[in-house]
């Protein structure tokens, strides 16, 4: 699982781009390892999900555990750019009530 991490707002915001098309049992451990530095160093983690086409229960679980870690630090986790299948899945399992989901990067950053 390759993640691109860039920072904005003087390091307060980490923008994490998921490069893979899947977030599943095969790469969740790597995802959690790679996103950990962003959680440790930034108050707000913004995840770019534009490339993601498929999320399974392990992937969903890893996003929930990321949210839990960010919340523990009193930080914010924002997701944007969900593809239609992923968005439909999030709505179906009611995860849209748990995560802050935005259409675009600009919209996500505007709410900081």
């Amino acid at each position: 699982m390759e993640l691109d991490i860039e920072t904005a707002e003087d390091g307060k915001v980490a923008i994490v781009t998921i490069q893979s098309e899947n977030l599943d049992a095969g790469n969740v451990k790597k995802f959690q390892e790679n996103i950990q530095p962003a959680i440790d160093t930034s108050q707000c983690v913004v995840v770019d999900m534009r490339r993601l086409k498929f999320v399974d229960s392990s992937g969903l679980g890893s996003l929930l555990s990321t949210l839990r870690k960010v919340n523990t630090k009193q930080g914010q986790l924002k997701l944007f750019g969900m593809s239609k299948p992923v968005q439909a899945l999030f709505e179906l399992v009611r995860m849209h009530r748990i995560f802050a989901i935005y259409e675009s990067r600009e919209e996500a950053l505007a709410t900081l």
């Binding site: 399974d56 229960s57 392990s58 992937g59 969903l60 679980g61 890893s62 929930l64 555990s65 839990r68 899945l89 179906l92 399992v93 009611r94 995860m95």
Partner: peptide
């Protein structure tokens, strides 16, 4: 081996 997040996610996906 599953934590609460994974179990919750699994249940939610199973419902879907």
């Amino acid at each position: 081996e599953l934590g609460p997040d994974e179990l919750f996610a699994s249940d939610a996906m199973a419902l879907a």
